[in-house]
Simulated scan of single mutants.
Amino acid sequence: MTSFHTQGLHGYSVKFSPFSPTRLACVACQQYGISGTAALLIFEFDPNFNAPIAVTQTCKWEDGLFDVSWSELDEAVCVTAGGDGGIQVWNITNNVPMLVLREHEKEVYSVDWCHTGDKNLVISGSWDNTVKLWDIGAGLGKSLGSFAGHYGVVYSAVWSPHISGCFASTSADGTARIWDIRKQYMPQHVIPAHETEVLSCDWSKYDDKILITGSVDCSLRVWDLRNTKSCLCQMCGHTYAVRRVRCSPYVAGTVASCSYDFTVRTWDFLKPQGLSPLLETIDHHTEFVYGVDFSTFVPGLVADCGWDETIRLYKPQSLNVLQTL
């Protein structure tokens, strides 16, 4: 394991680069994101942990930054979600954004860059209850459209890795919704995912019909879009809200989640019925854990960040065991 102290900045989101096996982005805020400034931090690291993780670029912003996503077309470009309602597009060779998009009426809490179909597209989820669609390649100052339907804050919006133009969103209204950008005004599915706020979702990398949700009710649920009347599996173990969920790009059924209970947990939702899906509990943080991600280059490598001003890179034992089976 290797770690880095962000020196007064509280981590919100981490993402591995889709181009480089040694690059990582993190957004972190002063004052826990409640007030003050923030920064987009770019790191280089040794996947074998033979050298310390190092910051190669610091891009400062005058408000909070709550999420980050890498471009799928340019290894030097990423987008961030701003507490001022803006979306910042950065070329990491500079410390100022090359484009700022302002259309949301409240904080932007989620951004995701499309990795199937048109790779110029970005979606943003906001506390104004909407998801907006942007064409970054066109350099337009306005969105291509707005997806309204949630009755509460939108906490996450994530493109499907399988189906072009399809994305999922989750909200304080307790639902997950599936959208097709060609049918802007009506969701294709409305899933009554949890009885409380749904803070995160992610798609299985192995099955285009499977979506995982994480909630304030401390649980993760697995949904099959062919039948959303009940979940396929409920994963319980966290003692506070599940802040973010991520599906493994290497092992079908494997999920990582992070929580306000200071832990990261790994799960296998394909375990036979009657066996606990919980694989491992990792408790190396001393505050809320807000971000977690899997490397697509290095099997079993995970990054996370938390409000304890710490970013950690490590290989959970449970994932290394699974990958040798």
Rank of each mutant, 00 (worst) to 15 (best):
V251D: 07
N94G: 06
M186W: 06
V222A: 08
V122S: 07
V68L: 01
D46M: 05
L144K: 09
V251Q: 05
N129Q: 08
D207W: 06
G125L: 06
V292P: 02
A168M: 03
W223I: 09
G11H: 01
G174F: 02
F167E: 00
P18W: 07
Y240R: 15
G145R: 00
D208L: 09
G253C: 06
W203M: 10
T196D: 14
S126R: 02
P21Q: 12
G11M: 07
S160A: 10
P299W: 04
Y206M: 11
G8V: 10
A138Y: 05
T6L: 15
E103L: 03
C236Q: 14
G8T: 10
G64P: 01
G137Q: 07
A51S: 13
P316H: 09
S230K: 14
D268Q: 06
A157H: 06
L270H: 08
K60W: 05
P21A: 14
K15W: 00
L279P: 00
T93D: 14
G253F: 05
T196Q: 15
A39E: 03
K271W: 04
F147N: 00
F66W: 09
A148D: 09
Y206N: 06
G82W: 05
D112K: 02
T296Y: 07
N48F: 13
T130L: 03
T281R: 14
D202H: 05
G8R: 12
Q188P: 03
Q188L: 15
P277Q: 04
H115F: 09
E72V: 01
W203G: 03
T324N: 08
Q57M: 12
K15G: 08
S204E: 05
V255W: 00
E309C: 15
F45M: 08
R226P: 03
S164E: 07
V96H: 08
E280Y: 04
K60V: 09
L211V: 15
Q317S: 14
I311W: 07
G64Y: 09
Y260I: 10
L65Q: 04
F294D: 03
V245Y: 02
V55A: 14
I53A: 11
P249N: 08
V89T: 04
L121C: 01
L232F: 03
Y32Q: 07
